[in-house]
Structures are given as C-alpha cells and as structure tokens.
Amino acid sequence: MDLEITGKRALVLGASRGLGMAIAKSLAAEGVTVFAAARSRDKIADWSKGIENVHPVELDLGDIVSVDGTVDMLLKDGGVDIVVNNGGGPPPGTAEAAQRSAWITHFESMAANLFHLNTRLLPMMKKCGWGRIISITSSGVEQPIPNLAMSNGIRAAVVGWSKSLANEVASDGITVNVVMPGRIHTTRVDELDAAAAKRTQTDVKDVAAKSLAAIPVGRYGKPEEFADVVTFLASERAAYVTGSRIRIDGGSIKSI
C-alpha cells in the first residue's frame, strides 16, 4: 500500500529512544524527511547513521526558548506537514503526594509548551491545506494507571486539547489524533517496572509477569508495531480519521 507521504516533512519529538525513535524510523522508511528531536541530539545521530532523510535536532520541551528556536528553524525552512507529539513522562507517584510545583513543571513540558509548538506550526499546514498532528499519550488516559497520577492527569489534558483542535482544523485538511500505547517494550516501560518493584519490594520479574498476565495477547508490544500505526495515521490514506483515540495495547484496556 502506498501511503502517499513520500517527500512530506515531519517533526518527531522524543526521538532519541523508544517510541519516538521507532516512529522516526518508520516515517523515514516511507520517504518522509524527518526532523528527529530530543534533548540528546547525539543519541539521534548515533541511531540515524546511514539514514539520509533523518535530521537530528536538539530540543528540550521543558525550555520554551529551545522550543521556539526549533520552530523558528523549521518555519524558515518551509515548516512541516506532520507533527508527532511524543515526550517523556513524569516520575511515578500518587495524586495525594504530588506537589503543586511538580504539577506546574511537568504540565509546562508535557502540555503547555507542546500546545504552543503546534499552534506556531499550524498556519503553514493550513496554507498547504494538509497536515497531520499525532499525540502519543498513554493507556492511562482511559484507564488510570496506579502510581502514575501526574501522567494520567496531564496526558488527559493533551487528549482534550487534541479533540478540540481536531474539530477546529478538519476543514483545512488537517487531522489531529491521539495514540495510546499500552505496554510497549521500551526503556521507559523497563524503568516503570523497576520503580514498581522497588515500591512493592518485589522482584522486577514478578512485576513484569503480573503486567503480562493482564494483556490478552500475552506479551509486550514491539516499538515497530506501534510506530507503523502512527505512520499510517500520518498518511494520506488516513485522511478521514480525526479526533480519534487509537489504542495499541494488546487488548489490555478493559473498557469497550
């Protein structure tokens, strides 16, 4: 199937590892020029060696100056057609224990600065009459994950923003969707399993086994499986999909 995105330009955030890296590779394989962004430009440069259409970009979502600098660079160069909003998550913790300062810090990097970045890139998409905005959240926005209160709360705000924006720009040829990963085997998931093991004073293998038991397909997902769904949503073939939440979780979310 030809996804009809050869020659398009994409900004992929959080692309130094995990889901962001897999998405950047998947888009690049379809002929998309990918600006792969993260705080560690060197890590992107390492994995993208030999991939001519991947361009490493240093970007810190927690620093508005860094965000605006990246947007300025992209707009000067013609803007982008596709934005993949993918950022790191806050540390584990309960809602009761979360402090106001932590909420503000993480909301800025995970939501406010993300919204600002997309708002600045939108006019060029509107001018072209084509665009794709895809936000990576978490299964926690539908089924809150214990001890990840800040992630559950802040990512839910991204879902509300995404649905609102989708309705506003649909007539401009721009789709806006949310993709929710379940247990996709990345470094982030390994870190969360380790944190859970420490908190419950159990072996990390037992934590992983408990997680696997709750997934109907009986395994963690592969980053590439997740990335290919995102790439389809970024394509011309998915032009009628907008304002949606897509689960990639092996069936682990219990609701319909």
Rank of each mutant, 00 (worst) to 15 (best):
T119L: 12
A10F: 04
V34P: 05
S40C: 08
P146G: 09
L11W: 07
I104S: 05
S235F: 01
K222C: 00
E96S: 14
N85I: 07
R41G: 08
L27M: 06
S255I: 15
V176Y: 08
A227G: 08
A227I: 04
V169P: 00
P144G: 12
V178T: 11
R245C: 14
A166C: 06
L117R: 04
N147S: 08
D60T: 14
V204A: 09
S40Y: 07
D68N: 15
P146H: 11
T105P: 00
P91I: 06
M73C: 10
A196C: 00
K25C: 11
K76L: 11
S244N: 11
V84I: 15
K210Q: 15
G31E: 04
A36Q: 10
G160L: 09
M73L: 14
L75G: 01
A149L: 10
I23N: 02
R188C: 00
I51N: 07
A29E: 11
S16F: 12
S255H: 12
D249F: 07
I104T: 11
L3E: 06
V204C: 04
G88Q: 11
H55W: 01
I136M: 09
V67E: 03
A28E: 08
E58G: 09
S40G: 12
M150H: 09
S164V: 12
D68T: 11
V178A: 02
S26Y: 06
A208T: 13
S16V: 06
L165S: 09
S151D: 13
